[in-house]
């Protein structure tokens, strides 16, 4: 693949999907600065692997996988960065009431990391149990148990009982 072709196709993908990928990273880590770091790292890796990933048609899944795993790695590093005093622009949130949105997002961030990721992949992004298990490198049984616990915790905030999609 010629360099110009790679740059053009990569640029097209970034323009189309970066906003969504930043939201995925933010939903996982709860911090826009860290989310941007994660997405930047992931997109650079995507650029390097572009010919192979493009051929397989899995650009978005490739980046998303790096995001979820990279965040795990970041939290395990003793030198994990903490930023302060550099507050990002508050994003606009439309739709449900501000109280409910904040409560749900807070509840989401309060979930254990793996539960949070499972809930997001299964119930926000619509991945199957098998796809979620593969992406997170855990068993399908673990996906189901995390789903059940995570959704139950969110239900407690929303006050609406429902069957989790296991």
């Amino acid at each position: 693949m010629r360099s110009e072709d790679r740059d053009a196709a990569f640029s097209e993908f970034v323009a189309a999907r970066r906003t969504h990928l930043r939201r995925v990273a933010y939903a996982i880590c709860g911090d826009w600065h860290q989310a941007d770091d994660l997405v930047q790292t992931s997109l650079v890796k995507l650029y390097a692997a572009w010919p192979r990933v493009r051929r397989d048609g899995g650009e978005e899944a490739y980046v998303r996988t790096i995001i979820v795993r990279a965040h795990i790695d970041e939290t395990r590093r003793p030198w994990r960065r903490e930023r302060s005093g550099d507050v990002p622009e508050t994003p606009a949130r439309a739709g449900a009431s501000a109280e409910e949105r904040d409560a749900l997002f807070d509840a989401l961030q309060a979930l254990p990391m793996m539960q949070r990721k499972v809930v997001l992949l299964r119930h926000w992004l619509g991945l199957s149990v098998a796809e979620t298990a593969t992406e997170l490198r855990i068993s399908q049984g673990t996906v189901k148990s995390h789903t059940s616990r995570g959704v139950a915790a969110l239900q407690a905030v929303l006050g609406t009982p429902a069957e989790p999609r296991c």
Partner: peptide, 21 residues
């Protein structure tokens, strides 16, 4: 709270991305 409902609520709770990157 069906799946679509939860997905919608999650999507709204995450909000839109600020300018950045």
């Amino acid at each position: 709270m069906d799946d679509l409902d939860l997905a919608t609520r999650l999507d709204r709770s995450i909000g839109s991305a600020p300018h950045g990157g």
